[in-house]
Amino acid sequence: MSAVTHDDLMAYADGQLDPGRVGAVEAHLAANPDAASEIALMRRQSDALHALFDPVAAEPVPARLRARRIAAAQRQRRGRSWSWAVAALVLLSLGVGGGWFARPLFEAPAASAVLIADAINAHTVFVAENRHAVEVGRDDSAHLASWLSNRLDTTLGLPDLSAQGFALVGGRLLPGEPQLGGRAAQLMYEDAAGARITIYVTAALPDRQPAAQLASLDGAEAFYWANARITCTVVGTLPAERMQAVSQAVYGQLTDGDVSAPRYRS
C-alpha cells in the first residue's frame, strides 16, 4: 500500500478521497495526531468559508439574475419585428380599432418585455403550487378584488371566464418592478381538467399609452396589453385557440371598452 500523501489528506478532508484509499488514510490518522488535527483544520477552514458566504446563496435571487427573464429579454430583442406583427393581427381579431395601436408598433416598448417576463415567471412559480397557489381564495373574491384594487391604485374587476370553462382559484399580490409601480396582482383560473392560466396585472405604465404584444417562452404563451389604467398579461400553456378565447374574454372584461378611463379611481 502506497504512503499517505498530503493530497490524500486533503481529499479525505474534502470527502473526495477514492474509497479504496480511505482505510489507509484512517490508519495513518490513528497513528499521526498531527495529520488528524491538520484534517480538522482544513475542515474548519471550509466550515468558516461557508459561514462567511452561504448567506449570499440563501438570499432571494434579484430579478435581473433570473434566467427566464434574461432569455425573454434576448428573445424580445431578436423577435421584436415579428412579435409586433402578430400582436397587431391579434388586436385586429379582437376588433380593436387601428388608430391607437399603431404607436407601439414603432416604439420599442421595453417595459412590456420586462412585464411579460415577470408574468411568465410568476405563472411558472405559482401554477405548480397546490396548497399555496393563491394568497386569497375564490371564497373571498369580494375582498380579493377590493384588496388588489387598493394595492394597485386602480379598479380591478375579477374577470368571469366560466364561458371559457375556467373558474377563479384566487389571487395574490406580488412585488413588481420598482420603476413600474412596484406591485403586481396575479389572478389564477383553473378549468375542469386542472389546466391553469394566470392574469398578471399592474397599474398603468408612466406613459399610459395603449400597447399590445404576444410572446411565447418555454411553452408558455403570453398575451400582453396596456391601457391608460392597467397593464395586463394573460399567461397559459393552452392550445392557441383556447388561449385566444381566454385572452379575448379577459381583455373585453378588464378593458370594458374604455381604454381612456382614468388611471385612479374616483
Binding site: 449570499v56 446563496a57 439574475l65 433570473r66 427566464r68 411553452g219
Partner: peptide
C-alpha cells in the same frame, strides 16, 4: 413545457445561488 430549452434554463436557475456566492 419541458423540452431541452426549458431544461437548460432550469439548470441555469439552479446554479444562480452558487454563482452569486
Amino acid at each position: 413545457p419541458g423540452g431541452p430549452v426549458n431544461d437548460f434554463l432550469d439548470q441555469v436557475e439552479t446554479c444562480v445561488p452558487a454563482l452569486r456566492r
